[in-house]
Amino acid sequence: MAVRKIPIAHKATQRQQRMLGISSLLLLGISLYCADLDMKQIAAGMERLPAIGRQLAQLSFTNGGELLRELVTSIVVAFLSVILGVVAALFLAFLVAANTTPNRLFGRVLNAVFVIIRTIPTTIWVLLAVASMGFGPMAGVLGLMFPTVSYLIRTFASQIEEAGGETIEAIRSVGGTWWHVIAKGLLPTLLTAFMATTAFRFEISVAESVILGMVGAGGIGSLLQGYISYYQFADLSLGILMVFFTMFLLEMGTVQIRKRMGRQN
């Protein structure tokens, strides 16, 4: 005897899920067609993989000194861009934050400018800097500064808006000036939060600075780029290992800083 099955699904949800499934499949099909993937190329690349893996497994220390020097350059580039960025952002954030801006409209216009700067990828900024100043660390510092400053401003400003209210009221109520509010009220209150943000940004900047060497910003990235172009995989693997350990140590360090700074709040 045939038993009629009792439906259990919620009709509208079921319909939505079906629509989602169909449109995903459709998009996948279109993407595959547009990307023009060549199966033969994939197969050939697969065949080469073991050979590349074998070459990468060999470490060569002949260029260790040079790699180390350039790694330091990468870190220095990141460090300089963050330090200069913090100096600029510390001032500008107070002009942007809604509760400290001397003029609402001015604050909003300034904020819009930094939103535009943020939406342009770091790589573009570095390429622009390279185009105007030539290859080298200076272009890296300048190119990294734009996104760094705008990132710091956004984060600092929201920290000011979040934590500032009561302190601002207090200093204003005693007849303090705008500078008093900033220097005597907000900076002491927010210093550790700012430091934690800065440490986090430094970590991101080092990662970016390593990559940006590949587009001409100097540092270890330009060496790695060269090794790949000339199939010097043994040198490349040493470079990758060095970058890996640097990033690993850096993250451990910044996590500690952020934890300590956070706890004091």
């Binding site: 207090a170 200093i171 005693v174 007849g175 303090g176 000036t177 705008w178 500078w179 008093h180 220097a183 005597k184 009220g185």
Partner: peptide
Amino acid sequence: HGRLGYIGSLAGM
């Protein structure tokens, strides 16, 4: 901080 209203920006900072 109660005295900030009586002194200048720089001295206060």
